[in-house]
């Protein structure tokens, strides 16, 4: 349970940070995501548990893909927060099935983002 909450927290923070760097500071999606990913990747050199050293960098990198969405598509911050939460849930549930498969983190991020847009259209019809 503790790990799940940590995954969700890291996911939301990473998504938000990337979205801010991308759209508010205009660094561009690729630079924003790669900077956040490198920061997450450096966690292996910190004294956290071995499980978290393996998991958290992947969560941070994957959630940074959510933040790569452009302002035109994800006009509201809440979409990024919901997508990041969906990403955390999907990562927690699917992490083991696709370990090491290139592009699996991005696919998880895309599914989380598309599902959030689906939620927005279903519940709020237009805006969220």
């Amino acid at each position: 349970m503790m790990n799940f909450l940590l995954i969700l927290t890291c996911s939301v923070l990473s998504g938000q940070l990337t979205y801010t760097l991308n759209n508010c500071l205009n660094l561009g999606a690729v630079i924003a995501s790669s900077l956040v990913s490198i920061s997450g990747g450096l966690l292996i050199y910190t004294p956290v548990s071995e499980v978290l050293q393996e998991t958290l960098p992947l969560v941070i990198m994957g959630a940074s893909f959510v933040g790569m969405a452009s302002e035109e598509i994800a006009a509201r911050n809440r979409i990024i927060i919901l997508s990041s939460i969906f990403f955390g849930i999907l990562f927690y549930c699917t992490g083991v099935f696709f370990v090491g498969f290139g592009g699996s983190l991005g696919t998880t991020a895309a599914i989380a983002f598309f599902a959030s847009l689906g939620f927005q259209q279903l519940v709020f019809k237009k805006g969220f």
Binding site: F65, V66, G67, M68, A69, S70, E72, I73, A74, S83, F101, G102, G103, S104, L105, G106, T107, T108, A109, A110, I111, A112, F113, F114
Partner: peptide, 27 residues
């Protein structure tokens, strides 16, 4: 992945996870 990226150049621009999904399809 590069070929799919060319095919999808007009689709889902600005959507999160587009590049990763293309890489996943390639792999």
């Amino acid at each position: 992945a590069g070929t799919i990226l060319i095919l999808a150049r007009k689709s889902f621009n600005g959507y999160a996870g587009k590049l990763g999904s293309i890489a996943f399809a390639g792999v």
